[in-house]
Nucleic acid binder design. Structure first.
Lengths: 135, 135
DNA sequence: ATGGGACCTGGAGTGCGCTCCAGGTCAAGG
DNA sequence: CCTTGACCTGGAGCGCACTCCAGGTCCCAT
């Protein structure tokens, strides 16, 4: 009823290991998570929401240290929203630049692939020519 | 005249450190580079060309081990072009997928930024209202 | 009561890609 | 002759983000 989630559920949902989940908590990305009487962790809905964002930022290569700083802002209350915006906008700028770089390299790689394909088809044509020549 | 390049020139051209250059050579990304009588490295035009491609692949996160495998194919001669094509096409597939993932997350981050902007402008509107109310 | 499964802890270990360092050589300029 | 600067070597060290492990607890079903 209480909308609590077990470590196993969270791990599956976010495709993280239990170890990583604990590591994130130790690293300060998550607050000290609630516990069942057994000592097992119980994640709340807002942990899930934060994890969602963390996952997204992590997937786009935000380092753990910056993630922790962000998480601290979240914990500090709504008055930190302007700072959080700064962090996100800064991160988005980096991300935009990274995507642009990757797309550029993608073009270069395609070019190289086309070059190799050209070499191969020329070679095939050469073979055909040899055959046509009667050898 | 011989179209040789010094380590310093190469390092600057590719924005790599001398250490990294040597590390790449040890790791098998480059062949055993030529030496001047002094023992200093002298890079040839084809080293430069290979480095160009290596830089491109590295910038798109190809791991050193795969890069080494690719470099070995290059060293083995033209008959390895089909295998090189496989490596490049496989890498391009990963890269395409990675770019797609980043773009998706980019959207999510933009969304979050917009959400925070919304909170802030609502807050500002609330303040305005308070003022209008005569406080 | 016993076995299995999910989870706990603190701390050590791993893989990757560099990066740094001490101590040395060589060539050119003052 | 001496310094300076570019470069050499082998090997140690580093930062990051996990990942693994031993040994333990709790709870539930057989």
């Amino acid at each position: 009823m209480e909308d609590y989630y077990t470590p196993g559920e969270i791990a599956e949902r976010f495709d993280l290991t239990l170890d990583t989940l604990r590591y994130y908590e130790k690293a300060g990305l998550l607050r000290r998570v609630d516990r069942a009487p057994s000592g097992h962790r119980r994640y709340r809905t807002d942990d899930v929401e934060l994890l969602h964002l963390i996952r997204c930022l992590r997937d786009t290569d935000m380092p753990i240290a910056r993630l922790r700083a962000f998480a601290e802002l979240v914990r500090s209350g709504d008055h930190t929203i302007p700072e959080r915006l700064d962090v996100l906008q800064e991160h988005k700028n980096r991300l935009d630049a990274r995507i642009a770089e990757l797309v550029e390299r993608q073009g270069a790689i395609e070019h190289k692939i086309d070059y190799y394909l050209g070499v191969l088809s020329e070679r095939a044509a050469g073979t055909a020519h040899t055959l046509k020549d009667g050898s």
